[in-house]
Amino acid sequence: MIRVQHQDFDPGKELQDLTSNNKNIGGLASFIGLVREFSNDQKLDSMTLEHYPGMTEKMLLAIESQALNQWPLDASLIIHRYGCLNPGDRIVMVATASSHRQAALESCTFLIDWLKTEAPFWKLEKYKGIETYEWVKPTSKDTQKTKRWKSR
C-alpha cells in the first residue's frame, strides 16, 4: 500500500494495521524518516516538500511492486508526506513484513534507498534567523546506495 499525504500518521497504528490480518508474518521491519533540526550547520526553521502529483504515486507503486517481486513479502507500506514540515516531524515511513526477518529487513532498506533518488520530491529548507532558503541537493552517497541495488 502506498500513501502520499500532508497529514501526519501514527506509526504504531500503521504497523498494527499492516499485520493484523496475517498470522503468517514472522518479521516486520520499518523505517521512519524525520526532519533534522540542523542542516548544513544551520538551525532549520521548516522544510517544505514539493512533489509531482500523479508521478509520485506512480513511482511509489512501481517501487513497491519491485520489492514485492524481489522478496517474499506478506505486506508492505510506504507513506510519504508533502508540504511544510518542522524539525522533529515525520516525513516518510516504510514498513515491510514477511515470514522471516531477512526479507523484511532487506526490502525495507531497498525501498528507502530508492525513495531518496527515484520518488519525485524536492526539499526546500528555511533556516532560523536568516531570510534565505535553499533547495536541498542530492548527495552522491544516496545515488550510490540506489545503484547498489540496481547492480544486484
Partner: peptide, 10 residues
C-alpha cells in the same frame, strides 16, 4: 513534459 532538479525524497 515535466522539468525538475535531481530528486531529494525520503
Amino acid at each position: 513534459i515535466a522539468f525538475f532538479p535531481p530528486i531529494t525524497g525520503g
